[in-house]
Design a binder for these strands. Sequence first.
DNA 1: CAAGTGCGG
DNA 2: CTCCGCCGCACTTGT
Length: 881
Amino acid sequence: MSEKILLIDGHSILNRAYYGLPELTNSEGLHTNAIYGFLNILFKTIEEEKPDYLTVAFDLHAPTFRHQMYEAYKGTRKPMPQELREQVPVMKDVLAAMGVCMISKEGYEADDLLGTLAKKSEEKGMEVTVLSGDRDLLQLASSHICIRIPKTRFGKTTVEDYFADDVKEKYQLSPQQIIELKALMGDASDNIPGLPGVGEKTATKILLEYGNVENAYAHVEDIKPNKAKNAFLEHYDLAVLSKKLAAINIDSPVDYDWESARIKDFYTQEAYDFFKELEFKNFLSRFEDTGAPAEAEKSFSTVTELDQAEEIIGKARQKPELGLHILKENGVFLGMGLSFSDEEKVLSYCFLPQGFLTEAYLLEQAQMLCQEAAMVSSLDVKSMLRHMDLENHTKMFDAGIAAYLLNPLKSAYTYDDIAKEYLGEMLPAKEDLLGKLNYTKGMKDQEEQAALSVCYMAYVALKSREPLKKALEETEMLHLFTDIEMPLLFTLSEMEKEGIRVNAQALKEYGDQLYVRILELEKEIYQEAGEEFNINSPKQLGVILFEKLKLPGGKKTKTGYSTAADVLEKLAPDHKLVADILEYRQLAKLKSTYADGLAVYIGEDERIHSTFNQTITATGRISSTEPNLQNIPIRMELGRLIRKVFIPRDGYVFTDADYSQIELRVLAHMSGDEKLIQAYQEAQDIHRMTASQVFHVPFDEVTDLQRRNAKAVNFGIVYGISSFGLSQDLSITRKEAAQYIENYFETYPKIKGFLDGLVTEAKEKGYVTTMFGRRRPVPELRSSNFMQRSFGERVAMNSPIQGTAADIIKIAMIRVGKALKEQNLKSRLLLQVHDELLVETAEDETAQVSTILEKEMKNAARLAVSLEIDMHTGSNWYEAK
DNA sequence: CAAGTGCGG
DNA sequence: CTCCGCCGCACTTGT
């Protein structure tokens, strides 16, 4: 059997992969989608073809012989987007690390090198496969040379194979005639001219009749479509030139040694390191023994018998350090993972609640282990605390939070991700083990796999602690982790367990009242519109408003008309229908999300227990889910009324304290701008003060409009201002907005320098930091896309401010929680809403609670300006604001 | 599952 | 000139 060679058109395949795959970056922000796609196609082709030799050809930047023939020739020198260009050198490095033979030659394109090698290999009796995204290469096809063209459609890659016969079948032309075809019809991407008015159809017809360009010209008078005939007469020289440009040089002067192209083992240590850096998880699993760091022997077992469990837990009690995971899904306990080191081995167990091995027993043992061990690591300590009471904060290590601090942009911190990143181990993810099954179903149908997954969680928690801690030290975030995030976790856990009392009866009545009005509005709307339709469907609504009734508004979204409130508000004064729709929307929102939405979360204890997530946001804020209690209405009175259903337990009141403009105060401090600092020291009303200074009017003569504008500018500055955004906000021209901003920066001269400095820092380091060292990477700043880059700039300006404010209130929460306990108060922290804390306060403790809130919130950080709070008490959340 | 919309800071 | 201000979560429709 003859030997096989695989030849690859490097740039062409990279291009295909780049445009065929969604954007992909590693944690450093390096784009990797083209490299990923290239390797995917490479591996797939090699598996299918099993070639003996492999060579990848690349173009060089230097002009080629074609440029000398024809000035306007573009060839492959099309401009490449930055996101693709940065991947080319990395791709070459990766291939070099894999020991892949690469070739390029000044003055020649990759096509020419491929053509030359293809023909020479064919002469040596080899079977040749040429992989390219470019159909030009079809001219090389023969009975031994196959051109493979990968096509990406709907995310799936299919490959078309062309031997000479296939070319003929598809194009009715011989491979040779593909050159003629291109000469006649031209090629816009290479800037090869071709004949005007001659497309693929006509060109093919002419070639079928006359064979080639020269012969066609010899019979030019017979050429059928008159347009083509004239084009021939006028531009024959062009067609001849194009033919020369289109023809691949199959006799390029290359030094090539087939032996150096023989395929060796790709999976070298070097390649492994590259794949790891690029975070190509799928490919890493191709490395078997090579490269992977030596791993301690590990054993995983499932435990279902009580005596067995007692023995293992007894052994675990002797160990200084444990990995632990408690698996609950939908409130049902499914198992417990436990991991520890034992004589050079790592033992991991999954305990399943069966027979005598009960949930109660296992949770009790878990609590005991946590109290006794010197160190317990878990991927999610807070979820574990739901089932036990623990005091000592210092010996717990939350690997999920550590991983979050190290890269807050990830959407999840799963055991396989952490293992890959911090242990260099490729573990099967939950999805690999259970597919789409959840753990509840997995434990039923795939118990072994599900149990293994639980073992891995405990295992990774145990083993990743050291590397995570080291990474936190290196990034100077250990303090943030140890002194803020870890203690906060306990505070948040207590808040979740505490929950907040809700008057279900009142909530139901509120919803019923809304519904009465909703039905009224619905009727009126149908009448005004002249037909019934689904008001909740933006699509149907758009048709009614902008097509049937022909209201001005036009298109805005990619799918059709925008019916968003800011659009409808402009129409509402003139059209009762639109005004009614806006009211309907408002009520429907309140009913579905709040009245009905909250009701389902009220527990047996009359309380709602939200979940506070600590590892979600890019900036360091916490988020609240199931339900979200951080977006309860307040701005509109009707919505605000909902707060009356949030009530304290009997004998208690609510104390609510919120920071006054914490972000602007953080800005004043971080920028060090004396004028802004001074403004805060002098004035109670910072927006009026800003207006006075920006618009050069005395403080007492500031108009309401001026104050409102100044307020918008203050907000804008914090958000990473742009004249466009501000102009939208204030309904003014961009020019005016730009003027406001300029005035602002003149008034507070250090602000601009500070914000610019943040962007510069982000560009240099790749991330920005808060006052407490929290990091946020800003990979968008490397993008060649203007919008992406601008986004990166705004993020660089906003994140340190929002993040520092988040750090401060976290500190306050920890201290408030601690003070309540130390003073043996019954009062408890219930909610945090970004700059606000809500405390359920025993009636006889109101004075102490106020003192604690005031003291701990104001002193949470020492800034150049004071931190001020507004505080209220009330018998429900409405009255406490 | 994405898109549109709207609630909060 | 680019035409977006930042950070979230939940509900509804429609493919």
